[in-house]
Write a protein that binds this DNA or RNA. Structure first.
Length: 474
DNA sequence: CATTTGCCTG
DNA sequence: CAGGCAAATG
């Protein structure tokens, strides 16, 4: 395996920029100390170059969190993805979905937003989810050799069966079987669609069992959420009178290995392997079992999403010595959620790594370096805003069009594989304003002025999505 | 005392 | 990003 295939080279430009940024910031700091701290005089002396505030067209979907599957995204994914998987698969096709044209699917999806009768509502959702699941299971890009690993998955974390596959598996890079920008673009689209799907599935599950909590979360748009297995939810009973019926099953050896999941609301083949049924009529099902089943389903889905994730990331080796460039990529993506991960979090999200003192400190060092870069960008941007004449922090914002965001995104997700969570933008904006205010008031006179800001920001970490716990690609 | 953090440097 | 080191942390 040649590391140069990965992203080692991709940091060079940003590294040099980092040095430049540091030099500039240090220079401005020295000048302030030399010449006094009059804000006005400082503004005139600053050497930070003027950055043109161009508006860059962003290509992302309207919604940026995993919580909901937007109609546009669903439809585009469903229609655009030309799945060429063999039709001989034994998957039971969604009868209703198949009969629908893309247009009619769209209309059903659109009805989601309005207040329709409950049955109609669930039906539309079911069709929507089913369409995506079906397309995913047919995705031509997921190809894995049999592993020969016995699996009674479902109750067990899928990592168990995947850990047993001590094989190197190489995925086509550019120039390979799936090379080309079109393929990468398609993969990216699919990944994002699946990210949203994952959130959608979570919603469905929550809605089935804990409708009130689900509704409550629906009101909190833009906030990333994860399943929480707390008492509050586990004591709730599903509502009566709903037709909603969600079957999750894995019905073949290969699919069990891959952690694939399909759903349909009409029939479930009784084959060996896990067979999960989420049905509101099953009120007798012990809560613990329901939780376990749901968790198993989520685990499968996470792994499924991870499969595409790993395709985007590239070559992967199981159980390799030390941290790889892919681990670095993953760490950078995790940074979008968590700026201050403790060692426990790191162990959770890098389960394939045998942690020793060296590895741990290296990972911690990575995040330290991430933060350093992050805060340097923030300070730089804040000083720039001050020079631009901004005098109210409310005039500052961080959007995907922002120069600041672009700099961060290039550093943490250069390949642009990942859809940055909206929460990250919020935190970035808060950070920017903290720096802005501190500098405006002249707090940067104090050598340790940034520590107060660090204290604020370190409390804004959010949960890292379950997807990152998967060991599928590592 | 062992870890972790922050800062600086290459 | 990694090394090194002083300071902070527990």
């Amino acid at each position: 395996m040649n590391p140069s295939l990965f992203d080692h080279g991709m940091h060079t430009s940003s590294e040099s920029n980092l040095e430049k940024d540091k030099a500039e910031l240090q220079q401005t700091g020295k000048q302030r100390n030399l010449y006094g701290d009059s804000l006005t005089s400082y503004r005139n002396r600053s050497i930070i170059s003027q950055i043109p505030q161009k508006n860059i067209q962003h290509k992302w979907a309207v919604r940026d969190d995993f919580s909901c599957l937007p109609a546009a995204a669903v439809s585009s994914y469903t229609i655009a993805d030309p799945c060429q998987e063999d039709q001989s698969s034994t998957h039971p096709k969604g009868s209703m979905a198949e009969a629908l044209s893309p247009t009619s699917r769209l209309s059903i999806i659109a009805s989601h937003e309005t207040n329709h009768p409950l049955n109609e509502y669930h039906r539309a959702k079911r069709v929507r989810v089913e369409n995506i699941i079906q397309n995913m299971s047919e995705s031509p890009n997921i190809r894995f050799p049999g592993v020969g690993e016995r699996s009674d998955a479902g109750t067990r974390d899928n990592r168990e069966m995947l850990r047993g596959t001590k094989r190197k598996w190489r995925l086509p890079q550019s120039g390979g079987g799936c090379g080309g920008k079109e393929d990468c673009g398609k993969l990216r689209e699919q990944l994002w669609a699946m990210q949203r799907l994952l959130g959608e599935i979570e919603q469905r599950l929550l809605q089935v069992y804990w409708p009130s909590s689900s509704e409550a979360e629906n009101r909190e748009e833009g906030t990333a959420r994860t399943l929480e297995w707390d008492d509050r939810k586990s004591v709730r009973e599903p509502p009566e009178g709903s037709e909603c019926k969600l079957h999750v099953h894995q019905d073949s050896e290969a699919e069990r290995r891959l952690g694939r999941v399909k759903m349909d609301g009409w029939q479930v083949p009784q084959v060996d392997g896990i067979h999960l049924t989420f049905n509101q009529g099953h009120k007798n099902l012990p809560e613990a079992l329901k939780c376990e089943l749901t968790r198993a389903a989520m685990s499968s889905l996470c792994n499924m999403v991870s499969l595409h994730f790993c395709i985007l990331v590239g070559v992967n080796v199981l159980n390799k010595e030390g941290l790889t460039p892919n681990h670095l990529k993953k760490a950078k993506l995790i940074f979008f959620y968590c700026r201050y991960p403790n060692s426990n979090v790191l162990k959770t999200f890098f389960p394939d790594i045998k942690f020793n003192r060296c590895i741990t400190s290296q990972l911690i060092k990575w995040f330290s370096n991430f933060r350093e870069f992050y805060y340097i960008q923030m300070e730089k941007s804040a000083r720039q805003s001050i020079m631009d004449g901004v005098n109210d922090m409310k005039d500052l914002s961080v959007t995907r069009n922002s120069e600041l965001f672009r700099a961060l995104n290039v550093h943490f997700d250069k390949a642009n594989d990942f859809q940055v969570p909206g929460r990250f933008l919020e935190v970035a904006e808060i950070t920017l304003r903290e720096f802005f205010n501190a500098i405006l008031v002249g707090k940067d006179f104090d050598p340790s002025w940034k520590k107060a800001i660090y204290k604020v920001i370190c409390k804004l970490d959010s949960e890292v999505p379950e997807v990152f716990k998967s060991t599928v690609y590592l």
